[in-house]
């Protein structure tokens, strides 16, 4: 009995150590990422798919990791204003419209963090502040 209690305490301490090892920034990232997954499901997944695969020639995929490098500011503006006209993704041309999404800057930051760290992308966090800055410089 005593051994079990001691064992239990040791296990607790062990998990507490692991938890405290996670730095503040990686906790922040995880928070953005998981909240972003929820935003993605309700606003993006219908068209772009659960794996970011898009829909053949109709809807562009979100798997073009090369395009997405340094694209975050533009993504924020596209979420805010929508997209219309021609766009080249993954070596293919798409045309049509993406509606403007009614998201708050923090939701944009979360979903951008989610997209740019899923489907083969790996870019780290994109914060609320960065989104606010990007939105100031959107070209209309």
């Amino acid at each position: 009995m005593k051994g079990k209690i001691i064992g239990g305490i040791c296990l607790l301490v062990f998990f507490a150590m692991i938890y405290s090892c996670q730095s503040d920034s990686s906790i922040e990232y995880s928070r953005y990422y998981s909240a972003g997954a929820v935003v993605y499901q309700s606003h993006c997944q219908n068209c772009h798919g659960d794996k970011g695969q898009g829909l053949n020639g109709l809807i562009p995929p979100l798997t073009d990791t090369v395009l997405f490098k340094g694209y975050n500011n533009k993504l924020a503006c596209q979420l805010k204003n929508g997209i219309s006209g021609k766009i080249s993704v993954g070596g293919r041309n798409f045309e049509g419209t993406m509606p403007a999404l009614d998201l708050s800057p923090i939701e944009m930051a979360q979903v951008i963090t989610y997209i740019t760290n899923s489907f083969g992308n790996k870019q780290g966090i994109f914060t609320d502040d960065q989104v606010q800055n990007a939105l100031k410089n959107c070209s209309k």
Binding site: N46, C47, G49, L55, N56, L58, I59, T97, P99
Partner: peptide, 15 residues
């Protein structure tokens, strides 16, 4: 064709 809501997911499944 210009449907922004459920059509893409329907057509993905219909494929």
């Amino acid at each position: 064709t210009s449907c922004p809501s459920i059509c893409p997911v329907m057509q993905r499944n219909m494929l």
